[in-house]
């Protein structure tokens, strides 16, 4: 006759934890982890705000160098973003819908500025457009200078920031249900009308999110700008460059601009989140 199998008896030793305590410990561990990572990221930002007073912040805001850097950064970033959207959107569309030899290489080149150190990007732009550069020497012969001008700031911003928009646009157009486009075409719409009335509105949310990220990247651009455009107040000194100058000579100015950049960046990230949350249900 087989012997009955007994279930193993778990002995509760005085040192063992109950399920309730175990869960409490898990919650505590998770809370510590979340808090420590959040603090690590938030404390340096918070330190900027603790270091100044509202009076000092407002007084520094009227500093002509701050106003000039703010104005230059905003105008160049808006111009860069406009160029990226106007050229990047049709480029991403055509690129995503066609197959051609070397497409993989073009894809890699689009992404390259994302991993390239900005200083290298600036140096490369200088080698190309500088007075003795590959193309720059011809521009120089025509009396056109690019390096160390506001145009150089824009070129540098476009170079480093455009992948954020193009990658996003490319991915949206690749995933887009083409039956919408085909339907529009069979109904009598031209390819351009189809793009403007169907493809663009249905991918607008994602494109907007890419545009906001591009604007943020252009606004924060430092390395390529200082290498290629220099640091001339009123001409090429954008906000990040003014922060660098402020750290050396005018701490309050650096602090004010840093806070301004933090606020703008925060608004940008919140915007992206809101746009993404609204979603791209049809793309």
């Amino acid at each position: 006759m087989p012997r009955p199998v007994r279930a193993p008896v778990v002995m509760k030793t005085p040192g063992s934890l109950s399920e309730k305590h175990r869960r409490l410990l898990a919650y505590l561990g998770a809370a510590i982890l979340i808090l420590s990572v959040t603090l690590y990221l938030a404390l340096p930002v918070a330190a900027l705000f603790f270091r100044t007073t509202p009076e000092l912040f407002l007084a520094s805001l009227s500093n002509p160098q701050v106003i000039s850097a703010l104005w230059l950064s905003l105008t160049t970033s808006v111009i860069s973003l406009t160029v990226v959207i106007l050229v990047g959107t049709p480029f991403a569309f055509v690129h995503s819908r066609s197959n051609y030899p070397g497409k993989v290489i073009v894809d890699t080149l689009i992404d390259l500025p994302l991993v390239l150190p900005p200083a290298v990007a600036g140096f490369a732009l200088l080698v190309l457009y500088g007075r003795m550069g590959l193309l720059g020497k011809y521009f120089h012969m025509m009396g056109i200078s690019i390096a160390f001008t506001t145009l150089a700031v824009i070129i540098a911003q476009i170079f480093v920031a455009s992948p954020f928009y193009i990658r996003q646009a490319k991915s949206l157009f690749e995933q887009f249900d083409q039956n919408y486009e085909y339907t529009a075409r069979t109904l009598g719409a031209s390819p351009v009308r189809t793009f403007l009335t169907i493809t663009l509105p249905l991918t607008a949310g994602g494109l907007l999110s890419g545009a906001v990220m591009t604007f943020g990247r252009a606004l924060g651009e430092f390395g390529a700008t200082i290498m290629f455009a220099g640091n001339l107040p009123g001409v090429t000194q954008t906000m990040p460059l003014a922060v660098y100058v402020g750290m050396e000579s005018n701490f309050d100015m650096g602090l004010t601009i840093s806070i301004l950049l933090v606020i703008i960046s925060f608004i940008i990230m919140i915007s992206v989140r809101l746009i993404t949350r609204r979603g791209m249900p049809h793309a």
Binding site: T186, L202, P281
Partner: peptide, 19 residues
Amino acid sequence: PIERRRIGYVFQNAAVFPH
């Protein structure tokens, strides 16, 4: 061209423009 053929084509998912 597609747009000049005057063919009413209803796709599998209806492809009604959601916006």
